[in-house]
Write a protein that binds this DNA or RNA. Sequence first.
DNA 1: GTCTATAGGCGGATAGAC
DNA 2: GTCTATCCGCCTATAGAC
Lengths: 187, 187
Amino acid sequence: MPPTPLSPSAEKGLAARRKLTSAAAALIGELGWTAVSTRQIAERAGVRPGIVHYHFPSIKALLAEAALATIEPIVAAALPALTDATPTEALDALVQGLDAYRGTDPASLVFTEMYLAAARDPELRERMAGVMHRFKAALTGCFGDEATATVVMAVLDGFVLQRTMDPSLRAASLVPVLRRILPGGVS
Amino acid sequence: MPPTPLSPSAEKGLAARRKLTSAAAALIGELGWTAVSTRQIAERAGVRPGIVHYHFPSIKALLAEAALATIEPIVAAALPALTDATPTEALDALVQGLDAYRGTDPASLVFTEMYLAAARDPELRERMAGVMHRFKAALTGCFGDEATATVVMAVLDGFVLQRTMDPSLRAASLVPVLRRILPGGVS
DNA sequence: GTCTATAGGCGGATAGAC
DNA sequence: GTCTATCCGCCTATAGAC
């Protein structure tokens, strides 16, 4: 749809919302989901503290929006390389993309924080599951069966955790091992 | 060493420390690492709030002790099945043990919370890495090369995260896929 | 050695101003 | 529609009692 013109006041509100979600996402990574406060978000966004509760019903709702807005583009960006790709091509693309997630960067931390928050909040769990399901469906399409897709997803998430323990780990070193899991032998 | 007899007063202190770490571990799982407060720990442990700061220098130190005391026995319990085991035997033992970690249980949550806390605290990272290194060394011994051990560890950690999104996932379904990653073909 | 009372600061949310 | 001042509760840590 074409961009609807907004009143100056509505535009200001939209800008505030965007600054708040962006600040919230950064702070989830830096401090952890449950450690983020409305005051810190407001300070980082350059707005007064109370503004948070005008634009969002609660800090929980703001964190959910911020985290979903972080992971959705990441997952969406990974999908094209999986569509109509051979298993080997898909694996190479995934591993290449994986190197960006070093475990201690904001995106990695938001992902892991969100799994934990989702484990404690059914509504957030549903919303995150919707995003992750699209990714898993694409993997299942590439690799042929769901069990293989599950293992590949687990490796991606788990490798990010491993990297927090050993930053010297490189995604490329996974390739020889992961080639072996492709169904039907090495392709 | 033989158990040293303790004075009644020292014994009371030891009991308090044990109750506090146990309560802290449970609360890390329930609320999240950064959401746990000394008051809640004290209430759960059945002691007065201020006692926490007599037995532990800070809440950070208490959480670190509690989390390490949670993961150490879990890792230690997994090691015997990996010593002198064939790759296939080791895989079966790991998968069987994995079913206990459903993503939303206390132990699963403490593990993931601890990875995040370790990503933000170098000292905790060192201590956790020490525990996880023993596990990885055992896996490397079983599977012959470190890359395979890294993938297996990533699958274990990542599968626990996957399960928070889809509780119907069963560890047994991973076996056919994981058999394929064993070096030297199916053994 | 063990524990308590209290200080001092930060938190989310809301009632109401503009 | 947009934002601010304020309420009231909870937090960690310490000084000092027993």
